[in-house]
Amino acid sequence: MPISSHILISRLTWLCLCLMALPSFSWAANSATIDSYQKGNALYEAGKYQQAGKKYLDSFEQGLHSEELFYNLGNSFFKQENYGEASLWYRRALVLNPHMPEPRQNLRALKNRVGLLEFENKGYLKLLSHFRDNELISTLTLCIWIALLSLAAALWVNKLRPWRALLISVSILFALISVASILALKRYRQEVSPDNRAVITSANAVAQTAPVPDAKTVIELPPGSEVRIVTDSGPWQYIDIPGGIRGWVRSEALNLLWPPQATQTLPDKSNQPAG
């Protein structure tokens, strides 16, 4: 017995909803991680910032990934005057939730204190910085499918022939949005994406003109400064520095922004001191 079209559509819609609900099953709360987090909060309130930081890191290693945790962790590092790590965790909190105001405000306080360097996103890059990579991919995918399905429906579904012009217009519109999304995604990955960004965590880091210890200094990099990695060459990283400057910095002087790791993220490939 043949299945009519509206029955097929309704079945496919249900399938889609079920698939979209799949990840939510993995979001079940884990009470152990929450306990460590709450203990960390209590220790912070008591002024025991180092111990609070350890509890937060425990919570992170147990699998809690939350902007509140990252932000609190940044605060505990700030109170220990580890401004590089504080900046790193504030920025990670902003990656998880770009709309969170607290880490942004604390970064300004940090900037006032240590004069850290930051990339300034202007124009539409500023707009893009409020999105995440996955949101752009979702938008792009949705637009491509709408464009394709509208075109297919306009060409081959006889029942929709009266709306053929409308469907083709929709298809063209979404195709254009798709192209714009591809360009935006490309620019996002180059300039805004956290994947190739890093934060200076060493207190005495400097950017040098060459990947050798006795090369001349390009600029001093205050802790917490934001940089972009251009080339990873083992013990040295070739980086983009805010202000259109480039230079070489020792790998152990910085930590990758993303994905977050509790330990120093870049492998120690040399025993020489930072900077």
Partner: peptide, 20 residues
């Protein structure tokens, strides 16, 4: 902006870290 804001309390929002 001389000092930082206090920590966030309450239940944290869990996020999926699978970046891509």
């Amino acid at each position: 902006f001389d000092d930082i804001l206090f920590i966030r309390q309450g239940k944290p929002h869990r996020r999926n870290l699978q970046a891509n």
